[in-house]
Design a protein around this nucleic acid. Structure first.
Length: 578
RNA sequence: GGGGCUGUAGCUCAGAUGGAUAGAGCAGCAACCUUCUAAGUUGUUGGUCGUGCGUUCGAGUCGCACCAGCCCCGCCA
């Protein structure tokens, strides 16, 4: 999809090439910093060097010999020192941008692909029989946003929730259920009880070794497919999915699949054998399958324990094989804690050594740890753990207080809806507004900030747009868009706002290329700011002329649409009023 | 011992692929609501970009070394 800004950039490159004064491969343009009064720049340094002339001179020559086509989106060209600066044509650009936002609607900012390629995104991955906590929220939120972004970029995206539903601990969990009875409560309460009896069981093991034996027995029974063990395990899985689903629904998270680790269990012996046959791994004297030097700077690791048990990485290899067979992806993205960086380097190197995934990009998108307000890691043992449901509830509760305070006239149902959108939006934005690699601090004050770079500010900006449009509608039907003259939008703040609206498509592309949702968050914030300035400086409903009023209404409509599109990529809902 | 990530204003962060005067928000100080939502807007204070060398016409950005913080390194996930 070629958007107005793409065409502008292409026109600039074409115009420079047409002068035949610059080698084609040195025609490189860049977006200048905001303090530069231009929309695109050609720095003449490199071309000048290649041609053996002074950069200033080359920029001057180009400025005088450039010819612009009629109806060009380029408005002005000036040489400023060694830079050749291009400005957009205000009227044509305004019309072009608002046109395409109007035409594309919810798809504005999205791209298409001729041959749709598939990307698998592996995210969330909570453990069965445990409540989700802040440790899971980052993967869930960042992963879901990447799913949105790549869908917007035209990919077929498979979201897979790689549940932690297998491993030795299930023997003890089943044994605990047998000993203390099946928990009985409502979704998350049920899981909390399950956690509690599991902890209690492990506590009692210390004094009663028979219990350890019992856990092992159940573990074995489960592996062998014993019906009772299987049934209790399945009950744990279902209870966990039920409880998690409430959180997923509130966060707008949807998966295409939730193949847990157990799903791959039957593939593991073949995977291990294959690795050994391929000489990617060998058996050591203890019987363990060892992988050595899978790549530079990669420590040795195990594919199979000496007692025959498999490991996390064994299941991951099987998972990759399965995904390749099943989905034929061009890329598999893992949204997982940065502490597992080495694990993924080892995994990817091993899979390649086994002859898989040569033409498939394997990407680990790492994210930092969540710390409490005192800078301590959250842990159950330290007693400072924050569970996801409690986090969401608290965020919504605090948002509700603000709504009651700021907007007492709304109906109760509307207050609840706004509080939900604002509270959840704050939690989501807290994970998306900055580079995921950074560690983040759980700070209620900052998370629920209603000012500055916050989800609330963005939602508020949208609500203000809608408010204007609502009022306009009460004064009579809006003009049909085709009759609106967008070339009237020449006020500095109108022009600035339009330029930001025009950047959404490229912003989405950059966010995808960098696996960086914050690029979109930045765009939303910058755009909302520009709208705030426009809002102060340009009356819409009381514009000087009715033609200008119509044009500004079109601009407000476009702003609302673009902001909504950007925020929906982030998974943030926009209230009509707040 | 080996490796990874991070270091930009008092605090939280942008500044990817080297370019023009390093930008926001918060906090502080000050101004603006009989006019479309003040959850807003404007002004202002505040920076040896961890340190040092190097590459380059040009370095917050690239290379090397060092310093500080966090994290990882075969029988957990």
């Amino acid at each position: 999809m070629d958007y107005a800004l793409d065409r502008f950039v292409a026109e600039v490159a074409t115009a420079i090439r047409a002068t035949e004064k610059v080698p084609a491969d040195l025609v490189e343009t860049q977006t200048p910093k905001p303090n530069i009064p231009a929309d695109l720049a050609f720095p003449a340094f490199r071309a000048a060097k290649a041609l053996g002339v002074a950069p200033l001179q080359l920029a001057q020559q180009l400025a005088t010999s450039l010819r612009l086509p009629a109806d060009s989106l380029i408005g002005a060209v000036t040489a400023t020192g060694p830079f050749l600066n291009f400005s957009i044509h205000p009227q044509r650009f305004a019309s072009a941008v608002l046109d395409e936002i109007h035409a594309r609607g919810d798809a504005y900012g999205h791209d298409d692909q001729d041959e749709q390629q598939t990307i698998v995104v592996d995210y969330s991955a909570p453990n069965v029989a445990k409540r989700m906590h802040v440790g899971h929220i980052r993967s869930t939120i960042i992963g879901q946003t990447l799913v949105h972004i790549f869908r917007a970029l035209g990919y077929r995206v498979i979201g897979d929730n790689h549940l932690g539903d297998w491993g030795k601990q299930f023997g003890a969990i089943i044994a605990a259920i047998m000993r203390y009875g099946k928990p009985d409560g409502d979704s998350e309460t049920e899981l909390a009880q399950l956690e509690a009896i599991y902890a209690r069981y492990n506590e009692e093991i210390k004094e009663n070794p028979e219990l350890d034996e019992e856990a092992r027995r159940w573990s074995l029974l489960l592996e062998q497919g014993d019906p009772q063990a299987r049934e209790l395990w399945q009950w744990c899985v279902d209870a966990t999915l039920r409880a998690n689903q409430r959180n997923y629904d509130r966060l707008g998270v949807q998966f295409d699949h939730a193949y847990g680790e157990s799903f791959y269990e039957h593939m593991l012996p073949a995977v291990i054998q294959e690795a050994i046959d391929n000489k990617a791994a060998y058996r050591d004297e203890g019987g363990a399958a060892v992988v050595e030097e899978a790549g530079p700077n990669l420590p040795t690791f195990l594919l199979q324990r000496s007692d025959g048990g498999t490991l996390y990485i064994t299941r991951d290899v099987a998972t990759i094989e399965f995904r390749i067979r099943e989905f034929d992806p061009v890329r598999i993205i893992y949204v997982v804690d940065a502490r597992q960086e080495l694990h993924f380097r080892q995994l990817f190197a091993l899979v390649r050594a086994m002859g898989y995934a040569h033409d498939i990009e394997l990407v680990h998108v790492p994210f930092g740890t969540v710390f409490d307000a005192h800078g301590n890691a959250l842990s159950t043992r330290k007693g400072n753990m924050v569970y996801l449901e409690a986090l969401l509830d608290e965020a919504v509760r605090r948002a509700r207080e603000v709504v009651e305070n700021k907007n007492p006239d709304l109906s109760d149902a509307e207050k609840a809806a706004v509080a939900e959108a604002v509270g959840i939006g704050a939690v989501v934005y807290n994970d998306l507004y900055q580079d995921p690699r950074r560690n983040i601090t759980l700070d209620w004050g900052r998370m629920l900030a209603t000012e500055g770079n916050s989800a609330t500010y963005l939602q508020y900006s949208y609500a203000r747009c809608r408010s204007i449009l609502r009022r306009a509608a009460t004064e009579g039907p809006l003009d049909d868009f085709t009759t609106v003259d967008c070339t009237l939008l020449l006020h500095a703040s109108e022009q600035q706002l339009i330029k930001y609206l025009a950047r959404l498509p490229d912003t989405v592309r950059e966010a995808g290329a960098r696996y960086a949702p914050f690029v979109i968050a930045d765009w939303c914030y910058a755009t909302a700011r520009e709208f705030g300035i426009f809002f102060e400086q340009c009356p819409v409903l009381k514009a000087e002329t009715s033609a200008l009023r119509s044009a500004r209404l079109a601009l407000v409509t476009a702003t609302a649409q673009a902001l909504k599109n950007g925020l929906s990529l982030l998974g943030i809902n926009v209230p009509e009023r707040m």
